[in-house]
């Protein structure tokens, strides 16, 4: 599963760099947006694969070898798949013993980090889009080459639209 994620990270990252190297602000904004996805995906990859590995040919069939948790797993198999054991989301039954909670649930820390990142990247995007609108209002172009030739705006806000 990590491999899938790594490929996704590679592709989204590549595309976002490609977009950001472009010559037009809209594409750059999309690149920034995509960059957020790429970064988030690479962070969540660090929580390790949610697939519980068992060795050998019976990996797909046999129940997990971990005795204390196998019963939970049996109840909570992933609905889409038979035979693959998947960890549970980081939501606790508070009565259960927790000597090693991460054996049964996925690592919650990367998720918390990403949650923050999502919100912030949304804020950044909103800001960026507004900037885009304002820029196009003032300069009538979003092409970088043309923007570079615009005179620097006056301190009081530049030549306002009539």
């Amino acid at each position: 599963m990590t491999m899938v994620l790594a490929i996704c990270v590679a592709v989204t990252f590549g595309v976002s760099i490609y977009l950001m190297l472009g010559r037009e602000l809209k594409g750059i904004a999309m690149g920034v947006f995509l960059l957020g996805h790429a970064a988030n995906l690479s962070i969540i990859a660090m929580s390790g694969s949610p697939i519980l590995h068992t060795h050998g040919a019976e990996a797909s069939r046999a129940p997990a070898t971990l005795e204390p948790i196998s019963e939970h797993l049996d109840e909570q198999r992933h609905p889409l798949m038979t035979g693959v054991n998947i960890k549970q989301p980081p939501v606790l039954e508070h009565h259960e013993p927790m000597t090693d909670p991460l054996a049964t649930i996925v690592d919650p820390l990367p998720q918390a980090l990403i949650l923050t990142a999502i919100v912030i990247s949304f804020g950044v995007m909103a800001f960026l889009l507004t900037l885009l609108v304002v820029t196009s209002r003032r300069t009538h172009t979003l092409a970088i080459a043309e923007l570079a030739q615009e005179p620097a705006p006056e301190p009081d806000g530049g030549p306002a639209q009539a």
């Binding site: 994620l5 590679a10 590549g14 760099i17 390790g48």
Partner: peptide
Amino acid sequence: VGGVFGWMTLIAAS
């Protein structure tokens, strides 16, 4: 760059 990032993800995860 994309390839490098994919690789780095693998390293970090594994």
